[in-house]
């Protein structure tokens, strides 16, 4: 026994640690010696605790699970249960299943990591920076939640720090904002999200316009598209004859 010099952060979680212990003691994963493995596991946990109080709860949960299995195994098994296929009654079955499943994805992660990865093993031509910053490809892509949040955050960062004592009398409501957006879209195919704001927008203007935009998307009156990732958000009006069916699949279609 070489002691427990292995650090906890080397393991991705209790399943990982268990797999390590099973291997280390050359056990058959389908026939784990629960008593031994529990002992080993608890010893690890104890040594981690000495070093680091912030032991993740998952590790403790697994310790409890192991002890539970161990106690179940100690109980006498009735003959009936043993005659039948003992597999399902084995208190270890669930744990073994999880371990095998976890091992499968761990291997898959390894396999994926061995592929020629972009920007690690293989490289594409990089765009000259002046092109990358200026040109937006013609292909519009539907916008997802994260793009919206990014756009929102950018605008909020422009709107400056909220003033502590500001009192707003003329507060813009979401309903008014909806009407303003629809007005702007009158006779035009699209407006950019940033266009809805003038000068240095107040924080609440951003929020209200954002809510209004989402509401319009929900009402299928608006479609949000983007040229490039992190590019400008474009709001497209959906006219009456467009049934909007094609727009529901992507771009916040789940909202």
């Amino acid at each position: 026994m070489t002691g427990y010099e292995v650090k906890l952060d080397q393991f991705e979680g209790p399943l990982d640690l268990l797999l390590h212990l099973i291997r280390k003691h050359e056990m058959d994963i389908c026939n784990i010696q629960i008593v031994e493995i529990t002992k080993q596991y608890l010893a690890y946990i104890a040594s981690f605790k000495e070093l680091n109080l912030d032991l993740a709860g998952e590790f403790l949960l697994m310790a409890a699970t192991l002890l539970h299995i161990k106690s179940k195994l100690l109980l006498p098994v009735s003959d009936d249960a043993e005659d039948e296929e003992g597999e399902e009654d084995d208190p270890r079955a669930e744990l073994v299943r999880r371990l095998l499943e976890y091992q499968k994805y761990k291997d898959a992660a390894m396999t994926l990591n061995e592929r020629p990865l972009l920007d690690r093993d293989v490289f594409t031509r990089s765009l000259p920076s002046f092109v990358a910053s200026e040109a937006e490809s013609e292909e519009l892509v539907p916008v997802g939640l994260f793009e919206l949040v990014a756009a929102m955050q950018e605008l909020l960062s422009r709107s400056g720090a909220p003033l502590a004592h500001e009192i707003d009398v003329d507060r813009l409501s979401v309903a008014e904002s909806i009407n303003l957006i629809m007005e702007r879209l009158e006779g035009r195919e699209s407006v950019s999200f940033a266009e809805l704001f003038t000068g240095e927008p107040r924080r609440q203007d951003v929020v209200v316009n954002f809510l209004a935009t989402l509401e319009l998307v929900k009402l299928r009156l608006l479609r949000i598209m983007q040229n490039t990732r992190c590019g400008t958000l474009w709001l497209f009006g959906i006219s009456g004859e467009d049934d909007g069916g094609s727009t529901t699949e992507d771009g916040l279609g789940y909202a």
């Binding site: 979680g13 399943l15 998952e58 898959a108």
Partner: peptide, 21 residues
């Protein structure tokens, strides 16, 4: 990522369960 790739569509809770963390 491997779990999401092979098991999609998948929820956070399912990823947590498979990884145990």
């Amino acid at each position: 990522l491997a779990i999401v790739a092979y098991r999609q569509p998948i929820t956070r809770a399912e990823i947590d369960y498979l990884r145990g963390v």
